[in-house]
Design a protein around this nucleic acid. Structure first.
Length: 304
DNA sequence: ATGACGTCCTGCCTGC
DNA sequence: TGCAGGCAGGACGTCA
């Protein structure tokens, strides 16, 4: 599932590939993904706009557009949240109607890493260079919002998101201040997008393993040295994962369809029963609020 | 304030 | 072999 490093990988790719392009057309077969405006309105409103920037806020991809007339009052924003299984792909596809509402989307690029037929592409933006930006999503949980920049930026979807863990001004004391007032288990706090942006199930497990902290540890009980370790682990692991272009457990792919390399060096996530890299103890998996947590019962035994 | 659970969705795995 | 049932999981809503 795309978390901060995976989304950053996509955003970096898009900055190389789609800046300056104009959107010439839109196709979709799953209207529920488009939360704003009304799905039928999207094409009319976005057609002709030029892509000027692509950024990330938490796990959200932000595509900034303009109509080039009066830039300050005519800027627009396309927000894409990939949720569990969404990915943005840059390529060329052909759409064939199979029946009333069924379509078949197949890649026109020979040697493409993507399978020839992609049953999960539900939304395509056509660009003025003959290429396309497609949203593929097996579970159809992804969400897309589009509108005037100010309006989208002020929606709770973006407004409520906490600070970026890798931001230069997010130092140890800023981190401590946020974390210390929490009463929940540390794993849940790390994954709460309103506390810190971009961390999900995979990286919270990895960060806690590196910091040697039990996922169930009540946050207010963390000692100062543990908070320091946690902060350091968070920055290190996220940076490393960005360098390796993310983790591909569920089915993350970059915009060219390639998996991320962090998968190879992960220490706990989906390694239940395998030996801990530090002490050899089998990795344990437990449920916490409907999510699974993976940890080493020996290295991370400091609960209670 | 916290937590537990249901919802969305579908490929995959298990068990009979 | 085949099919039913359970599971995963980010964000959000509901209820205790």
């Amino acid at each position: 599932m795309p978390e901060l490093p995976e989304v950053q990988t996509i955003v970096d790719d898009l900055n190389k590939k789609i800046i300056g392009r104009r959107i010439t057309d839109v196709w979709f077969d799953t209207p529920k993904i488009i939360k704003k405006p009304k799905p039928a309105e999207l094409e009319k409103q976005i057609k002709g706009l030029k892509i000027v920037d692509v950024r990330r806020k938490g796990k959200n991809i932000l595509v900034y557009l303009t109509n080039n007339k009066q830039p300050t009052t005519n800027d627009f924003l396309l927000l894409i949240h990939q949720k569990l299984t969404g990915h943005l792909l840059y390529g060329k596809w052909q759409i064939k109607k199979v029946s009333g509402i069924k379509y078949q989307v197949s890649s026109l690029i020979s040697g493409s890493l993507e399978e020839k037929v992609n049953n999960y592409i539900h939304l395509i933006f056509y660009l003025d260079n003959d290429w396309q930006l497609a949203l593929s999503d097996l579970r159809k949980f992804a969400k897309v919002l589009f509108g005037p920049k100010e309006e989208i930026e002020n929606l709770p979807d973006l407004k409520k998101i906490g600070p970026e863990p890798l931001a230069r001004n997010f130092d140890i004391s800023a981190f401590q201040n946020l974390i210390k007032r929490e009463r929940r288990k540390i794993k849940q706090v790390l994954m709460d997008q309103e506390v810190i942006a971009g961390i999900g199930n995979i990286y919270s497990d990895e960060i806690l393993w590196q910091a040697k902290i039990h996922p169930f540890m009540p946050t207010y009980k963390l000692k100062t040295y543990q908070l320091k370790n946690l902060y350091k682990a968070m920055r290190q692991i996220l940076q490393k994962a960005i360098k390796l272009r993310g983790t591909s457990i569920s089915d993350f792919r970059d915009t060219g369809g390639k998996p991320g390399a962090y998968t190879e060096i992960r220490k706990v996530y989906q390694r239940e029963g395998e030996p801990c890299n530090r002490c050899g103890t089998p990795i344990k998996r437990v449920k916490i609020g409907g999510r699974s947590a993976h940890y080493c019962p020996k290295c991370q035994s400091n609960c209670e």
